[in-house]
Computed example of a mutant assay.
Amino acid sequence: MIKVTADPSSDFTLTPLSGDQYTSCLCGSERKTLSWTMTPTALGVVNVTVTAEAITSHISCDNEIVSVPERGRIDVVTRPLIVKAEGIEMTKTHNWLLCPKEYALTEETEIHLPENVISGSAHATVSVLGKFIY
């Protein structure tokens, strides 16, 4: 009998597709695929850790008594996942023609982000081109 759990994280939530956790019979040389629904709360690389542990049980598996080995009864796997913002990338461009004459010239602007912008996905770039005329 094995119990498979995912470690909690502040970067995401993992919800098993069946109940709170997975507990299942697994005989030697068998494999099982277990799935979770992942809801990320942060962008970038997040580490997901899953633990599989052999546990004692009074339930028989395929008419065999459940046994827990002394060695190799627990396995922990950590994998990095890259979380990218979904949605549509938006680009806004503002242009100015500045003609300073013998004094410094400044220009200010405000950047307004949409209400539904994904936290951590916004970025701004400033580019200045100059031409000297004599």
Rank of each mutant, 00 (worst) to 15 (best):
P114E: 03
T37I: 13
C99D: 11
A42C: 08
K84P: 02
F132A: 13
G19P: 03
T56F: 09
S121G: 13
L113D: 13
S35H: 13
G130V: 09
V50M: 02
L34V: 07
M90D: 05
H94Q: 14
T106M: 14
P16L: 02
I55P: 03
V117S: 11
W96P: 08
G19S: 09
R71W: 00
T23N: 07
T41Y: 07
K101R: 11
E64Q: 15
C99S: 14
T91A: 12
A124T: 08
T5G: 09
L34M: 10
A124D: 14
I133R: 07
I111V: 09
P16F: 02
V117M: 05
T51M: 00
K32S: 10
D11R: 07
V68H: 01
K131T: 11
G44L: 09
V45G: 08
Q21G: 12
E30L: 07
C25R: 00
E89L: 10
G28Q: 02
E89W: 00
T106C: 12
H112N: 13
I2F: 03
R73T: 04
T15P: 03
A54N: 01
N95Y: 10
D7A: 14
A52K: 04
G72V: 10
A122C: 14
F12Y: 14
R79Y: 05
T49N: 11
T78I: 12
K32E: 09
A104N: 14
M38S: 06
T125W: 04
F12E: 06
A85Q: 12
S9R: 02
T91N: 13
T106H: 11
V48N: 00
G130N: 07
G120R: 03
S57R: 02
I82R: 12
T37P: 01
K84E: 12
T91L: 08
S60C: 04
Q21C: 00
L113W: 15
I118T: 13
V4G: 03
